[in-house]
Design a protein around this nucleic acid. Structure first.
Length: 304
DNA sequence: TAGCAGGAAAATC
DNA sequence: GATTTTCCTGCT
C-alpha cells in the first residue's frame, strides 16, 4: 500500500529517526526502512509530505500520523522549553525532531539492552534478537523481521540470547520477558496514569523482588517518554549528566556538581537521579522530555 | 549508600 | 593495537 501523509512544517524525519529513541530504522538510499505493527514501513520525507510504502493496511495514514505525533504543534513545545541559550541552540540545530509513539514492549525490551552500550551496539543487539526470535517476511525485495513478542523471548534460552551479543544483559531480557508474558505489568493503562504513578508501575517490587529486573529509573523514564506519552519524563544518561554539569550546574547540588565535574563520575545514585530529574522538570516544564532529547543530540554532536 | 562487576563492541588514543 | 568509554542496574 502506498500513500502520502501531509506534514506540518516543523518535522524532520532524519532527526527524529536518528535521535536515539528508536533502534530499528535504517536508511537505504532515499528511504528509511522500518518495522511497525509487524508491518514493513518505508518512508521518505518530501517537501511537505511523508511518502509511505507499507506491507500492511494496518500501517495506514492515521497510524503514521499518530506514530509521529503529527497532530501536535511542535513550535509551541519548543517555545515552552527554550529557557536559555544552551537549549535554544540545540532546538535550532535539530529543529523538527519529534518524539514518537512507539510500542511499549519493544521500547522496554530495547532499553533493557541499552546499559553500558552505545547506539550502534544497541542497534546490533536489537537486530540480532529480531533475526533470531522474530518472524521474517519479504517486502519489495527486502527481508524484514518483526520484533519478537514477550512469549518468544521468555521461551528463549540465555545462551541463545548471549549469541545475539547481549552479554550479561541476556538474563535480564529473559526475566523481563517472563514477567511481561505472565501479565505482571499492564502496559495498556500506563498512558492513562500520571507520570509518577506510571513510573511506580514500571519499578514495582513484589515480595522484595523487582517485577522488571533490569529496569531502573533511567530505563523507566525512557519507556514513559518514548512509548507512553509522558512528555515530562527526563531520562538522565551519561550525555545528559555531562550537559547538566557543564551548562546547568545550578540544577545540581554543590557536592554532586563537584563529583560530576571533578572526576567525570557520571553515575548517579537513585536519590541524585530523582532530585536532578525533578529540577529539570521544574526548569523545562511539562515538555522536559523534549528538552532532554534536543540536549542529548547536541551533546553527542559536541562529543562532550 | 557507596563501590563495584558485568561482556563486548565502539570510540579514542 | 591498547585503552577507554559506552543512552545503567543489581548486588554486596
Amino acid at each position: 500500500m502506498e500513500f502520502t501523509v501531509a506534514l506540518p512544517s516543523a518535522f524532520s524525519l532524519e532527526y527524529t529517526l536518528e535521535s536515539g529513541q528508536l533502534f530499528r530504522w535504517e536508511k537505504r538510499g532515499e528511504w528509511w526502512h522500518g518495522v511497525v505493527k509487524g508491518a514493513a514501513l518505508k518512508v521518505r520525507q518530501e517537501a511537505d509530505v511523508l511518502r509511505c510504502s507499507t506491507s500492511s493496511d494496518l500501517a495506514d495514514s492515521a497510524f503514521i500520523a499518530n506514530y509521529f505525533r503529527l497532530d501536535e504543534g511542535l513550535d509551541h513545545v519548543l517555545a515552552t522549553i527554550s529557557k536559555d541559550s544552551t537549549i535554544a541552540r540545540a532546538v535550532q540545530r535539530y529543529y523538527g525532531l519529534r518524539l514518537v509513539r512507539q510500542g511499549t514492549w519493544e521500547c522496554l525490551a530495547s532499553f533493557v539492552l541499552a546499559t553500558n552500550a552505545n547506539i550502534p551496539r544497541i542497534k546490533k543487539m536489537v537486530s540480532a534478537v529480531c533475526r533470531k526470535f522474530g518472524g521474517s517476511f519479504e517486502f519489495e525485495g527486502d527481508t524484514y523481521w518483526t520484533f519478537p513478542n514477550p512469549e518468544a523471548l521468555a521461551g528463549a534460552s540465555v545462551p541463545d540470547l548471549v549469541e545475539c551479543g547481549l552479554g550479561y544483559r541476556a538474563p535480564f531480557l529473559k526475566r523481563v520477558s517472563e514477567s511481561v508474558s505472565a501479565g505482571k505489568v499492564d502496559f495498556a493503562t500506563l498512558p492513562t496514569l500520571g507520570y509518577e504513578e506510571a513510573r511506580k508501575v514500571l519499578l514495582t517490587e513484589l515480595f522484595g523482588q523487582k517485577v522488571l529486573l533490569g529496569v531502573g529509573p533511567k530505563v523507566a523514564d525512557c519507556v514513559l517518554l518514548y512509548s507512553c506519552g509522558k512528555d515530562e519524563a527526563f531520562p538522565i544518561d551519561v550525555w545528559i549528566a555531562r550537559v547538566l554539569a557543564k551548562s546547568y550546574p545550578r540544577l545540581l547540588d554543590p557536592a554532586l556538581k563537584r563529583r560530576l565535574v571533578r572526576d567525570g563520575k557520571l553515575k548517579l545514585s537513585p536519590r541524585d537521579y530523582d532530585r536532578i530529574s525533578k529540577s529539570a522538570r521544574k526548569r523545562f516544564g511539562k515538555y522536559a522530555g523534549y528538552a532532554q532529547q534536543y540536549l542529548f543530540m547536541a551533546a553527542r554532536e559536541a562529543g562532550a
